[in-house]
């Protein structure tokens, strides 16, 4: 039993990583109705920017805030330049665009910063948290940041005019335009916020997985799995999904023989498929009814 609780605890702490990423995925899905395959790479790029800032002598929190702002602007710029013209194009074209972006960002990061693995600092330290060997202070901090982020998003969408406008633009664009919402800019804002959230995820994850251009691929797949599990339309669902995925991953690694690290990605794949088949809307998502 102790093994079980320990694994659940460890799962919650890895789950925080996925929860962060899943939040970014859900954010962009809400804004544009697409899954951004380049999300992980954008987050990785932001993390590299913060690393570079720190190398230049900017203190951690200064770099953190600067990176947030830069990522926000970068996200908006990408939307305005590359994806706004594709808004009316078939989904295929959009997916091709995401793939192109993925490939460019990954390659450029490798070009600028090299493919060697880099250490990344954590502001929370990495001591045992409250005397527990399983959760370090960094992981506890990461869980805290994720929850803060979630609460922040909840208040933004629920209680601000801007949040309401974004929700309106996402769910019924035509009607939203009729009541005077600039839906096109709401989408850009969604991209900016997703990029900023992604950068937080990247900066929280980097101390755990180390910084390198390919660090996000596995995390992104798990983030997708978490988002799908929680329901792609619900930020709360994404966070819960993230923690659940983390716990499942750890339990599977402990109790299923042979399913250690080498089955990490296949487990995520199986999870995505099972959820999509059994409950396509996810735990907290709303089902979509099609009308001819």
């Amino acid at each position: 039993m102790e093994l079980f609780t320990n694994q659940v605890l460890a799962g919650i702490s890895t789950g925080a990583i996925y929860a962060c990423m899943a939040l970014a995925v859900v954010m962009i899905y809400q804004a544009i109705d697409h899954l951004n395959f380049a999300q992980g790479e954008m987050a990785m790029f932001s993390t590299f920017i913060s690393w570079q800032l720190m190398q230049w002598g900017v203190p951690y929190w200064g770099a953190f805030v600067l990176t947030l702002v830069l990522s926000f602007i970068g996200g908006i710029a990408i939307e305005r330049l590359l994806f706004k013209p594709l808004a009316k194009a078939p989904i295929l074209t959009n997916v091709a665009g995401f793939i192109a972006l993925y490939s460019i960002v990954n390659s450029v990061a490798g070009l600028i910063w090299d493919f060697t693995i880099k250490q990344y600092p954590t502001p929370f330290g990495s001591y045992p948290f409250l005397g527990s060997q399983l959760i370090s202070t960094h992981q506890a901090g990461m869980i805290g940041v994720t929850i803060l982020l979630l609460i922040g998003l909840f208040f933004f969408f629920r209680f601000t005019r801007m949040g309401l406008a974004m929700r309106a633009a996402a769910s019924l664009p035509e009607s939203a335009r009729l009541v005077g919402i600039n839906t096109s800019w709401m989408i850009a804002l969604g991209w900016g916020m997703a990029a900023a959230i992604g950068s937080i995820a990247g900066m929280m994850i980097a101390p755990v997985v180390f910084l390198e251009p390919n660090m996000m691929l596995g995390v992104l797949i798990y983030g997708f799995a978490a988002a799908v599990l929680g329901g792609l339309t619900s930020p709360l669902g994404a966070v819960i999904g993230g923690f659940l995925v983390g716990i499942m991953e750890n339990l599977a690694g402990t109790y299923i023989p042979g399913a250690g690290n080498e089955l990490k990605l296949p487990i995520a794949l199986a999870l995505i498929i099972v959820v999509l088949v059994v409950k396509p809307a996810g735990l907290l998502g709303r089902p979509i009814v099609k009308r001819v």
């Binding site: 590359l82 091709a96 665009g97 793939i99 192109a100 972006l101 993925y102 490939s103 460019i104 960002v105 990954n106 390659s107 450029v108 490798g110 070009l111 493919f115």
Partner: peptide, 12 residues
């Protein structure tokens, strides 16, 4: 290492 970037740009 540039091939990814060239690929992506050409795709766009």
């Amino acid at each position: 290492g540039l091939s990814g970037a060239v690929f992506g740009v050409l795709l766009f």
